[in-house]
Amino acid sequence: MGTIKLKNIRTFSYHGCLIEEGKIGSDYSVDLEIKANLKHSAESDNLIDTVDYVHLNKIVEEEMAIRSNLLEHVTKRIIDRALKEIEMITKIKVGVSKLNPPIGGDVEAVTIEMEEERYFNL
Results as ranks from 00 to 15, higher is better:
68 S>N: 14
72 E>A: 14
30 V>W: 12
79 I>L: 12
74 V>S: 14
12 F>W: 15
26 S>V: 11
25 G>T: 03
53 Y>R: 15
79 I>Y: 02
59 I>H: 06
50 T>S: 10
17 C>N: 04
69 N>C: 12
86 I>A: 09
16 G>P: 01
32 L>M: 05
65 A>Q: 11
61 E>I: 15
52 D>S: 13
60 V>R: 12
81 R>M: 01
28 Y>V: 02
41 S>G: 13
44 S>V: 13
79 I>P: 09
48 I>W: 08
27 D>E: 13
24 I>N: 08
50 T>C: 03
21 E>N: 10
56 L>R: 12
64 M>A: 00
54 V>I: 12
41 S>D: 04
20 E>Y: 03
49 D>L: 02
75 T>E: 01
64 M>Y: 00
34 I>Y: 00
66 I>V: 15
82 A>W: 00
35 K>V: 13
81 R>W: 03
42 A>H: 09
51 V>N: 02
34 I>W: 00
70 L>T: 07
84 K>R: 11
69 N>L: 11
64 M>V: 00
88 M>C: 10
48 I>S: 14
60 V>Y: 09
36 A>T: 06
72 E>R: 15
88 M>A: 12
53 Y>G: 09
58 K>I: 07
33 E>I: 06
81 R>F: 04
52 D>T: 12
24 I>G: 03
23 K>R: 15
81 R>E: 01
80 D>Q: 09
31 D>G: 00
16 G>I: 00
48 I>K: 15
86 I>P: 04
15 H>K: 04
32 L>F: 02
27 D>A: 12
57 N>L: 11
14 Y>A: 00
29 S>T: 10
17 C>W: 04
57 N>P: 02
37 N>T: 08
13 S>V: 02
57 N>C: 07
28 Y>L: 01
22 G>C: 01
58 K>T: 07
63 E>S: 02
85 E>D: 15
23 K>Y: 13
56 L>F: 14
25 G>D: 01
47 L>D: 01
22 G>A: 05
68 S>A: 15
29 S>H: 07
34 I>Q: 00
74 V>K: 11
33 E>N: 10
49 D>R: 03
27 D>Y: 12
40 H>E: 14
77 R>T: 08
45 D>Q: 06
81 R>P: 00
37 N>V: 05
57 N>G: 07
47 L>N: 05
18 L>T: 08
22 G>V: 06
87 E>W: 05
16 G>Y: 00
21 E>R: 06
60 V>K: 10
62 E>C: 03
29 S>K: 04
73 H>L: 14
83 L>F: 12
